[in-house]
Design a protein around this nucleic acid. Structure first.
Length: 482
RNA sequence: GGGCCGGUAGCUCAGUCGGUAGAGCAUUUGACUUUUAAUCAAAGGGUCCUGGGUUCGAGCCCCAGCCGGCUCACCA
């Protein structure tokens, strides 16, 4: 690696290499072997008991050296713990060697735990061993790593020096585990469907393209698993979900990453109502088991997940905000209103499109508390069943929380003839884009089915109070380094 | 893509009117057996994002570019 050359002039690194050599001469090899600890540091703090003998290990994150004794803090990602090293306990040579350690080094120690005068849990070190030498210095201890770009490029460094960042990703792990547990307990099966697809279906988005040499065909990274999950419903897997990556070849901003994690859930013999109950129960379950609250602060608002959540048909919401007579207005009147609200209207938009543009720009963002928008115009949602009492509307909801769309759910379209029609409209003459295998599956008969998609990254933003998707994705997409 | 803000020591940041580059942490040396953002004394450490320009003189002003953040637009 060129790194070593690049940094060979680095004074800090040079000093650490010298310290490493001195340590090795003193009988402390720089890169030790496996270390069997009695517990991690969080467990040790939880079960603290004065006088117990322990073996613990971690990275040195702070060091206070004095003439004949030294204090240090080690951290292992679960918590911190203080070490006390005294010359008269470990001997002159071991003490001198300990003083050669640098912040960032990983050590293992053995000794008895006690509390200092200031009531801090501490281990009185009797033995210590160097497990790994750090050649590069850690960021400043008090402020941590602030440089936004470096936090994403050097995530390891971010996790070491910013505990709040570590906390977010621990929460992410817990949330995903608890979602699986919740769904498994309800009889759902987690499945895996193709990431490499020859037709990228199930959503309207630009796909990433790749080439498969063995078959000499172009393939696409999936934009959604939907069409495969529905095949499984046809096949008799009654309750399935997949929580995994989707890829969309689109822009990059605070709420978009080109690869993102999506949970898709399908329940046979259910409908949009089934999903409505499911998501409310699931979110409250997550909130209570992981966060121990149903209230979340996010972007200057407090969001309360207490159920039941508000439900409002799309048209009622529009009337509520734009006036009872909205739907009897003319196109010109609607455009005038849009102008008044400073909503940009494209040439050639019809009444429905103008209405939806106003909704998108001025209404959705104001729905802070969880809200189900139901009975959407059919044109907006091509893959859903129509409402029984009004064929112009579809039986779906869009869940809005904090002014953002969190989850759409449908009473899924299961009429293969209608489905083919809509695919053909979508494909606009390009027959190669129509997933014939999926249509065949539908022709064998798909039961009425409730389906839902949840953007996991956005859910995590909400639950962890993060205002950027990059703060909840370990390795977000970045521009290549110039 | 447009607008605004930013890029200075390993890290976090100051830098006045254009006049020899600053602090804290970190590092090195010394003192120190209950410290905890340890303390005290001293020292070393800079491609001021890059390239041009104006000027006797540029971290600072001008132009172009690179990188990042916010925001608007686009995209869905």
């Amino acid at each position: 690696m060129d790194m070593s050359e690049e940094l060979s002039g680095n004074e800090y690194r040079q000093q650490r290499i010298e310290n490493m050599q001195k340590l090795e001469e003193a009988g402390f090899p720089a890169f030790g072997k496996a270390f069997e600890r009695t517990s991690n540091l969080a467990e040790l703090n939880e079960t603290f008991e004065v006088g117990r003998q322990v073996k613990i290990c971690g990275r040195i994150v702070a060091m206070r050296k004095m003439g004949k004794m030294a204090f240090a803090h080690i951290s292992d990602g679960s918590d911190k713990f203080q070490l006390m090293v005294k010359k008269d306990l470990i001997g002159e040579e071991n003490f001198a060697a300990f003083r050669l350690l640098d912040i960032g080094d990983i050590v293992g120690v053995e000794g008895e735990i006690f509390r200092t005068r200031t009531e801090e849990n501490t281990v009185r070190v009797m033995e210590w061993t160097l497990l790994s030498k750090a050649l590069l210095p850690l960021p400043e201890k008090f402020h941590g790593l602030q440089d936004v770009e470096m936090r994403y490029r050097q995530r390891a460094l971010d996790l070491i020096s910013n505990p709040e960042s570590m906390e977010v990703f621990k929460k992410r792990t817990q949330v995903m585990r608890e979602i699986r547990r919740f769904l498994d307990d309800r009889g759902f099966s987690e499945v895996e469907t193709p990431m490499l697809q020859q037709i990228a279906g199930g959503a309207a988005a630009k796909p990433f393209k790749a080439h498969y040499n063995a078959l000499n065909v172009d393939v696409f990274m999936r934009i959604a698993p939907e069409l495969y999950l529905k095949r499984l419903i046809v096949g008799g897997m009654d309750r399935v979900y997949e929580m995994n990556r989707n890829f969309r070849n689109e822009g990059l901003d605070r709420t978009h990453n080109p690869e993102f994690t999506c949970l898709e859930i399908y329940q046979a013999f259910g409908d949009m109502r089934t999903m409505q109950e499911l998501i409310q129960s699931m979110f409250v379950h997550l909130a209570e088991t992981i966060f121990e609250t149903v209230e979340f602060d996010w972007m200057d608002n407090t969001i309360n997940l207490q159920t039941p959540w508000r439900e409002v048909p799309y048209r009622d919401l529009i009337r509520e905000r734009l006036g009872d007579d909205w739907f009897s207005k003319t196109l010109d009147e609607a455009k005038a209103k849009a102008e008044e609200l400073e909503v940009h209207i494209e040439e050639g938009m019809d009444f429905r499109e103008v209405t939806h543009e106003i909704y998108d720009k001025t209404i959705e963002g104001t729905l802070i508390q969880p809200t189900f928008i139901t009975r959407l115009p059919a044109e907006l949602v091509p893959l859903a069943n129509r409402c029984a009492d009004d064929p112009e509307l579809v039986d779906v909801f869009e869940l809005i929380i904090g002014g953002k769309e969190i989850a759409p759910a449908y009473s899924e379209l299961n009429d293969p003839i209608e489905q083919r029609k809509r695919f053909e409209e979508q494909a606009a003459g390009d027959g190669s884009k129509i997933d014939e295998d999926f249509l065949s599956a539908l022709e064998y008969g798909m039961p009425p089915t409730g389906g839902m998609g949840i953007g996991i990254d956005r859910l995590l933003m909400l639950l962890t109070g993060s205002d950027a998707i990059r703060d909840v994705i370990l390795f977000p997409q970045l521009k290549p380094r110039g």
